[in-house]
Design a protein around this nucleic acid. Structure first.
Lengths: 254, 254
DNA sequence: TGATTATTATGACGATTCGTCAATTTAATC
DNA sequence: GATTAAATTGACGAATCGTCATAATAATCA
C-alpha cells in the first residue's frame, strides 16, 4: 500500500492573508465540536461516537465537520491532542508548587494519576490515538501537533530530573541517561493507571486502593535510584496529600 | 440500556450427549478460523480484519462463522483468549527452569516481554479486548474463559512470591499484600511493553534498548522490596540471557 | 453600492461492513 | 428408507463512513 497521505484540510495557520474573521470562527467551532464529541463519548462510549451523531448534535452539516476532521480517526486524534493539552496544563500547575526535586517528580506522577481518573474517557482516547489504525487515517498536521505536545510533556519530566541532578539529590549512574529514567517512571505510571483505571481494564486488580499503591511503587523506584530524600527520611504521603489539595478539585471521577 | 446479554452459540461443552463427532469438528474449525483471523490481522492490521474477509479466507459461509463468534468483538476476545493461552504456556515454560525465587520472577518478566515483542498483534488484541466496546459485545462464556486464564496467570506470579517468602528471600512489610506486589510488577511490565512495544505506541521512547531498560526497572523495583539476592550481589544480566536462551527462539519479531 | 469571484456549507448518495434469517443441505434417529 | 434435528448458506436490511455536485455565503473589485 503506497502510504496514502491524508489531505490537509487547510487549518487556520495556512493561507496568509485571511481577514482573520473566518479563521477565528473556524477555531472556535472546532473547539465546540470537540466538546460535543466528548459529551457523546462520555455518554455513550466509543461505540456511540458517530459522525452522523456528531452532526446531529452540532448545528452544522456533515460536510462541514469533514472540513475540520478528515476522518473519524482524525477526530479521535484531535481529542487526544486536547487531552494532552489538559495534561500539560496539569503538569505546569503542579510544577508551580513548592518542594524539592523528588516532591516535584511525585507531583508529576500525581498529575498523571489525577488526569487518568478524572477523565477516563480522554485517557482511553490517548490510548486509541496511538493505534496504527488511527494514526494511518490522521492528518499530518494533527500528528505533528500531538508530537509537539508529547515533547513538551517529556520536557517537564526531564526538567525535574535535571533539577535533581543540579541539586545533588540524584546522581546518574554510568550508562543511564535522563531519557531512561523518564521512560521507567512513565512506564510505571502508565501501567498502573491503565491497569487499574478506565473501563476496568484488566479487571483483576480491583480491590486495591490505587493511590497508596502508586505511591509505594514510585517510592520503590525512586529509592532504588537513590533520589534523596529517601522515602524513609521524608513523609511523601504528606506531600501527596498536599499536592492533591493544591490542585483544583474535580468531582471525584465516580 | 438494559444490558443485552449476548447469545451463547452453544459451544462444545453444552448439550451432553452429542456423538462427539460434531463437537470435535466444531472445535477444530474454530481453531482454524482463529488462525486465519490472525493471519489477516498480521497482514493488514485491525482495519483489515473484516468478517467478510474472514469468510472469504475460510471455506465456510458467513452464517457459519457467526455460529462460532456472535460478533466481531467476540472474535477479538477469542483471539485474546488464544493469546492468554500462549502467554500461560510461556509462563509455565520459564517456571520450569531452575533458579532461585527472584530469578523466577525475572523469568516471568522475560516471558511477558518475549510475548509482547514476538506477537505484537496479539498483544494489541489483549489490549482491545479489555475495551468496554468489545466486552459489551462478547459472549458470557468467552468472557469467563478469559477471566479464568487471567486468574491462572496471576497464580503463577503469586506462586513465585509465595516461594520467595517461604525461602526467606522476601519479607512482606505490614499492610503490603501479595496482590500489591503482583500489581506493581505487572504495572511496570505492562507499561514498559506497551509504551515501547507494538505499533510504536507512544512514539517518543524509541532509541532505547528496551531489554536493558526493563531489566534495570525490574531490579530497581525488586531491590526496593529487599528481595534477595539484591542486584548488587548477583548477575541478573546473566540470568536474563540464560532464560532467553532456554526459551524456544522465535524468528525475531518483524 | 452592485457585480464578480472565492470560499464554505449542505445533505443526498455510493460504498462498505455488520449481523440476520428463511430456505436448504447435511447429519442423526427411528 | 422416512422422519426429525441441526447446521449451513448467501441474499438482504440497517448502520456508518466519506464524497461531491449544488447552493449559500463572504470577500473583492468596479
Amino acid at each position: 500500500m503506497p502510504a496514502k497521505i491524508q489531505p490537509e484540510h487547510h487549518n487556520a495557520s495556512s493561507a496568509g492573508t485571511m481577514p482573520g474573521n473566518r479563521a477565528r470562527n473556524k477555531l472556535l467551532r472546532e473547539q465546540q465540536l470537540l466538546q460535543l464529541a466528548q459529551n457523546i463519548l462520555q455518554q455513550d462510549g466509543f461505540a456511540g461516537l458517530t459522525m452522523d451523531r456528531l452532526t446531529a448534535a452540532s448545528e452544522v452539516s456533515k460536510g462541514t465537520i469533514y472540513n475540520h476532521f478528515c476522518s473519524k480517526e482524525d477526530l479521535i486524534t484531535a481529542l487526544s491532542v486536547d487531552s494532552l493539552q489538559r495534561q500539560l496544563l496539569l503538569f505546569h500547575q503542579v510544577l508551580a508548587l513548592p518542594g524539592h526535586s523528588r516532591e516535584r517528580a511525585l507531583a508529576l506522577h500525581y498529575a498523571y494519576y489525577r488526569f487518568s481518573t478524572a477523565e477516563p474517557t480522554l485517557f482511553l482516547c490517548l490510548l486509541s490515538a496511538t493505534t496504527a489504525a488511527v494514526v494511518e487515517k490522521t492528518s499530518a498536521t494533527r500528528l505533528a501537533q500531538r508530537q509537539a505536545l508529547e515533547q513538551q510533556l517529556l520536557s517537564c519530566c526531564e526538567q525535574v530530573i535535571n533539577q535533581a541532578i543540579a541539586d545533588k539529590a540524584l546522581q546518574l549512574q554510568a550508562g543511564r541517561g535522563i531519557d531512561q529514567l523518564t521512560y521507567l517512571q512513565w512506564a510505571l505510571a502508565f501501567g498502573a493507571n491503565a491497569l487499574y483505571g478506565p473501563s476496568q481494564q484488566m479487571g483483576f486488580f480491583q480491590g486495591l486502593e490505587q493511590q497508596q499503591l502508586m505511591l509505594a511503587g514510585i517510592n520503590l523506584l525512586l529509592d532504588g535510584l537513590d533520589w534523596t530524600p529517601l522515602s524513609g527520611q521524608f513523609d511523601y504521603q504528606q506531600s501527596w496529600r498536599r499536592i492533591a489539595a493544591a490542585l483544583p478539585q474535580t468531582q471525584a471521577a465516580q
